[in-house]
Write a protein that binds this DNA or RNA. Structure first.
Lengths: 357, 357
DNA sequence: AGCATAATTGTGAACGCTCGCAAGCTGGTA
DNA sequence: TACCAGCTTGCGAGCGTTCACAATTATGCT
């Protein structure tokens, strides 16, 4: 009992399928060829247990023979699930957030989800609304938000998407959402601990933009190691300089630090690009690294293993982060309770650090 | 005449919709509320011209009031089009291909397409099949392939996806596909022209991996400028060294070049990372840049503006590339003839080059 | 006024799949 | 032999939308 016969029984004598436009085979074609009902084919395709082994085998053969592929639109229409997850990445830079995207993709595909990405170019909180709308329209089954600012987080939560959602972020999220990130603050403390161990006591920090969650966390790690307990970053501290993540800003910040009365013995830049700028500034001022000054970065971006000198830094294991984010989303989609977790960073020591002089 | 009433007329007395699970409003809800037929609502939603202005306004009001959003699955089922485009990026590195992805996204979203991404982590030709399959299953309307090797291109073409497809690549594609990329060979020639102008005649090249299309094109640009007309890269040339894109390989290659009898006066590395390695090797050997040796890179990755010294390079305008790729895909989906085009690169001169000594 | 034409609206079927339920078949037990 | 349980299979409806076509209403012209 083929769909086309059903059609021709009721309609004026032709169907769209009879015109030359050849549609791909459907479940009905498989059913007819295998001599079973639509429902049975559906069960085979969906791995439903109650199908006899012989039937299953025969249907699978027909499926292979016809090259049948199930139609996700039809499936989504009836189940209400799209097998798609939306990833919202707000980034002006390549290195960080988009690295997470690369890491999420293989895991999503392995779990038979399609990945829909949006919002890579900016990190305005204003774009959050349209992007969530975009995902909602698309009918995604879950969302991963990679956010660098609390404003973006808040905007997402304010929209209250009634969907499983995981944040990859260092910000504050309500108890109803999962959150995961590499522990930036712990990483900063590791840097400080190592420098202390080498005898450094005047450790300057070039922080990233205020309001950037990673910049804030790294600065806080620096502050609490430097000052004992600290709950916030001391603005205007003589060993603190402000950068904007760019190498040029690290260069400027370093020059500024060098001109202050108490010259630091080590410079901890909040990212590698600024650390590169620091290296150049020190070079321009005739200071040798690490003999005169130790320099440390953060992120381990491409090429810093060949900086002059090679840069000590904290690599970000984006791959682990992506895998974990996908895990958490799977859990959320299965209705499990939200999780709030940190991944531990590691320190990668290269030639740019030495004992305090 | 509401869908739910239709249901209860035929079925045993309850429907899924009557259970608490509240489904979002459908076109039928809008039609009933506005007192028009389903078809009229559909026309309004699809901007079909033949709807009276008054009707259109009223329907739109109801749509706003109910918060109606059209169901992409139902739409895709009947039209056979998913409003999704697949982007396949084969990359082991962040800088290049994924930059294109960032650039494509806003344009795709502006054109009301969803972006499905796949295959970021590797560039094996073996992954091409599964990924195209993935896209085909999903029913994408078009595909953008960002490919670094001819093998990937060939694998894609061999699969012959009967879909609009655009390559972002420097490889050879059949006349039936659109292709676009930044002209790497022209960029290399620009580098060489500038160096010649500065009096350099012994210009070494550290090339990227053989088989990588960008590496090949850049090496070819170098070769044809150095040797007059050249149709292929001269293997084993005394001024040629091989790298693998990594900074470390640039370092090694530079040491090798320095140990050869005819010392170059300038080093043109096929990417910035290898150029950074070259800078460090020269530094380690006590050679000054640009006084003793000029160094040039390619790509303008983050931070090289603060290399020691700042690196002359060829920026890659990924944003323009992404926009153009989306244009070409739109054209392909509209059934227009394929286009094969190059974008012109520019040279960004910084302190790492000087006159020949 | 009367008719042809255009503009607007409605009808029924179809897209390919999964859901709830019911019916058929097998084998074992009373 | 008769009956029940469990495994397998099939039936009919419905998911929300657009398509082709038909029907209606408004418009222009003689």
């Amino acid at each position: 009992m083929n769909a086309r016969k059903l059609v021709s029984r009721n309609s004026p004598g032709y169907t769209r399928a009879m015109l030359q436009r050849r549609r791909p085979p459907t479940i009905a074609d498989v059913a007819r060829e295998a001599g079973v009902s639509l429902q049975t084919v559906s069960r085979v395709v969906n791995q439903h247990p109650s199908v006899a082994q012989a039937t299953r085998t025969r249907v699978n053969q027909v499926i292979d023979h016809l090259g049948y592929q199930r139609n996700p639109a039809a499936r989504a229409l009836v189940t209400g699930r799209s097998q798609t997850i939306g990833v919202m990445v707000s980034s002006t830079t390549l290195s960080g957030p988009s690295g997470v995207l690369l890491a999420i993709e293989p895991h999503a595909r392995a779990a038979h989800y399609w990945l829909s990405v949006a919002g890579l170019a900016h990190h305005d909180a204003e774009l959050v609304g349209p992007i969530l709308q975009h995902f909602r329209q698309q009918g995604v089954d879950g969302i991963i938000v990679v956010a660098q600012t609390q404003a973006v987080l808040d905007a997402v939560m304010a929209q209250g998407p009634n969907l499983p959602l995981v944040f990859v972020s260092s910000g504050q999220v309500g108890g109803q959402f999962s959150r995961i990130d590499i522990d930036q603050r712990a990483g900063a403390r590791m840097v400080m601990t190592m420098l202390h161990g080498l005898g450094h006591d005047r450790i300057a920090h070039i922080r990233g933009p205020v309001g950037d969650l990673h910049a804030d966390a790294r600065a806080l790690g620096w502050a609490e190691s430097l000052l004992g307990k600290a709950n916030q970053v001391p603005h205007g501290h003589p060993l603190l300089a402000l950068g904007d993540w760019s190498a040029m800003s690290g260069y400027q910040a370093t020059l500024a630090l060098l001109s202050r009365p108490e010259r630091p013995s080590a410079i901890f830049a909040a990212n590698d690009r600024m650390a590169i700028g620091a290296l150049r500034a020190l070079h321009d001022r005739g200071l040798s690294v690490p003999a005169d000054m130790s320099v440390i970065g953060f992120d381990d971006i491409e090429g810093v293993d060949c900086a002059i000198p090679p840069l000590t830094t904290i690599p970000q294991d984006q791959s682990a982060l992506g895998a974990k984010a996908m895990d958490l989303l799977n859990a959320a989609m299965a209705g499990l309770a939200p999780v709030d977790a940190w991944l531990e960073p590691n320190l990668l020591v290269r030639a740019s650090v030495g004992v305090a002089h």
